[in-house]
Design a protein around this nucleic acid. Sequence first.
DNA 1: ATGACGATTCAAAATCGA
Length: 280
Amino acid sequence: MQKLAFATWNINSVRLRIDQVVEFLKIWAPDVLALQETKCPPGQFPTRKLREVGYEHVAECGQKGYHGVAIVSRHPLEDVQSHNFCGMGDARHVSAVVRGIRVHSLYVPAGGELPDPDRNPKFAHKLAFLAEMREWLKAEAAAANPVVLMGDLNVAPYECDVWDHRRLLRVVTHTPVETDALKGILAESGMVDVVRRHIPAPRKIFTWWSYRGKDDWSRLDKGRRLDHVWTDPALAETSSNVEIVRTTRGWTRPSDHVPVMVRFGAQRVPAQQGGKNVRR
DNA sequence: ATGACGATTCAAAATCGA
């Protein structure tokens, strides 16, 4: 099993924060970085600064102003695809094959303020997106193996994915209709929530802290886990560790999300997959 | 209940984020 490290980060404008992306790549050195909210029209991606630090390959799906996703890689990217969820053409997905692994970068709609699909079209869109994602990912997981899905899924599925479960039950990202949908998508796909494989419940994990809390985000720690890494079960077995890179939230003019990183190619290989030295 | 902050956009106030 080859050693590989994958990371995902909602960067909230890749052009504004390209120096932070470069700093992250230099220090943490993942093989592949999935980005969301690039807010970058096609052709304006800051590829030069990425190339200078060894990341020569970029698959992007962007538009002006909003959303936008990308995959940045040290290794060649093959068979780039983009699924047009809900037929909206709003640049929320890109995927490519890296070293034989199908890698997805996905940005699920935020869903607006009011968790009522009849009165809030944005929430209706989010639910429709999640419904489409269920069938789409089931097919993707069956068709491509190995496979990694990374991104800002804008849902904190478990109680330990938010700072206060009871207070957030009626807040978009943690309402039961959303958390049930995301758990259903994961189960139906047969994929594994790799971060929770290494940091099981009830340990709290957050990847996002609101901009509206001023300078006390770390002390108050009112966060949510919105950013996820899922893989097929066999690849998950080879994951050696995960890292929530909280450090970047303390940088000057940070994104409100932090990177989530997973390392594969482990020390721990299950005996039944161990090859010629395995006794049966 | 409200607003707190931050990025983007035919450039001032609106929209989006979550």
